Amino acid sequence: MSNAQHSSSVAIANTLLNAPSRQLFASHDVEETRSMVGRVMKPHDLGVLGRSQRLDARMHHISLGDVALSRLRYGADVEIRPGPLEDFFLVQMPLVGHARIESGTEYVDSGPELASVISPTETTAMRWGADSDQLMVRIARPLLERTLAAQLGHPLVAPLRFQLGFRWRDCAAWRCLMAYLLECSTQDAELTHHKLIATQMEQMVIATLLSMHGHNYSDVQPARRSAILPKHVRRVQEYLQAHAHEPVSAEQLAQLAGVSLRSLYAGFKEFSGVSPMQYLRDLRLDRARADLLGAGDVGNVAGVALRWGFTHLGRFSADYKARFNESPSQSLRRA
């Protein structure tokens, strides 16, 4: 990764995660720091290495539902012993500084070019240097494993385990996703309160991590299931029509149809001409139009877009105009 890209990544985190409204705590006290970090992660042992050192800890935090972003520094050499994480996966990306991460039988010397992906079943111990300042993504284990099982078309026969070392700066999709999530979360303080948007963000994180970073199921092929039939397509369509206002994932739809995710997409496109998620997007555009043309107290275009899960107002307006041959504001004026 170039120096310019590195500087850009740090600048994004500096600007977006250092906002006072996102600061969870700042402390020089070991017990207070351990307790506050434990609330977001899990209870753990924390010790300062060296009598002459003093903590200068600070943590910023953004919750996106089953995915959460944090930025943490200790300001001193510390040892952290959480044991197995148990119910979540943790991606740790040093912006500056270094840390040694031991997880199960693996270890990495993590720095700005090498992140760590800690799996919940592995006993973990870490040493962070005083200069270590890390961006972290916490992902709920049930959601991640459920998504993988749906992609494969069968239950997992063993716990999901990722490779510990992750060259995240070399992965453009992951790097861009981090910038996008931070920007979205900071531009609108209420953004993550919209269930549809939070669910979309969760799905992007999970799908990107599963596809871009190695794990013990990377080489496992999806199960061969019977082809999706027109009745399955109708069942999915009816479900989407009834639940367009709720968070919906492709994995849920595959379970509903009783086929693998790959079969769902192939069959749905064959019988409907679009993917199931495009069908859902079109449904939500239709519902947004109904809101804009409906009662006068509907609010503004941005509010309607967020209500139906559209985070990018410019893209929403372009898609809306392509579908209805008029802009959202023109529809609102006709209400």
Rank of each mutant, 00 (worst) to 15 (best):
V137N: 01
I139G: 02
I139W: 03
A140K: 15
A140P: 03
A140T: 06
R141W: 10
R141A: 13
P142E: 11
L143M: 14
L143Y: 08
L143I: 12
L144Q: 13
L144V: 15
E145K: 09
E145Y: 05
E145A: 13
R146W: 07
R146E: 15
T147N: 11
T147F: 06
L148K: 10
A149Y: 12
A149S: 14
Q151P: 06
L152E: 07
L152F: 08
L152N: 08
G153Y: 10
G153D: 08
H154N: 08
H154F: 13
H154S: 10
H154L: 10
P155Q: 07
P155Y: 06
P155W: 05
P155E: 07
P155G: 09
A158G: 06
A158K: 15
A158C: 10
P159A: 10
P159W: 04
P159E: 06
L160R: 07
L160W: 03
R161T: 13
F162T: 00
F162R: 04
Q163W: 03
Q163L: 11
Q163E: 14
Q163G: 12
Q163T: 12
Q163H: 12
L164T: 01
G165R: 09
G165N: 04
G165A: 15
G165M: 02
F166E: 11
F166L: 13
F166T: 06
R167N: 11
R169V: 03
R169W: 03
R169Q: 11
D170Y: 04
D170Q: 13
D170S: 13
C171I: 14
C171F: 05
A172T: 10
A172K: 08
A173G: 07
A173E: 14
A173L: 14
W174D: 03
W174P: 01
W174S: 08
C176D: 14
L177F: 07
L177P: 06
M178G: 05
M178Y: 02
A179N: 12
A179R: 15
Y180A: 12
L181K: 06
L181Y: 03
L181G: 06
L182P: 00
E183M: 09
C184Y: 07
S185W: 01
S185A: 15
T186E: 12
Q187A: 08
Q187N: 12
D188Q: 11
A189E: 11
A189G: 02
A189N: 07
E190D: 15
L191T: 00
L191Y: 02
L191A: 09
T192H: 09
T192K: 05
H194I: 03
H194Q: 15
L196C: 05
L196Y: 01
L196F: 00
A198Y: 01
A198K: 00
T199R: 12
Q200W: 01
Q200S: 06
Q200T: 00
M201E: 03
E202A: 01
E202L: 00
Q203S: 09
Q203K: 03
Q203R: 08
Q203T: 02
M204Q: 15
M204P: 00
V205I: 14
V205Y: 02
V205C: 05
I206M: 07
I206S: 06
I206L: 08
A207N: 15
A207Q: 15
A207D: 15
T208D: 15
T208G: 09
L209S: 10
L209Y: 08
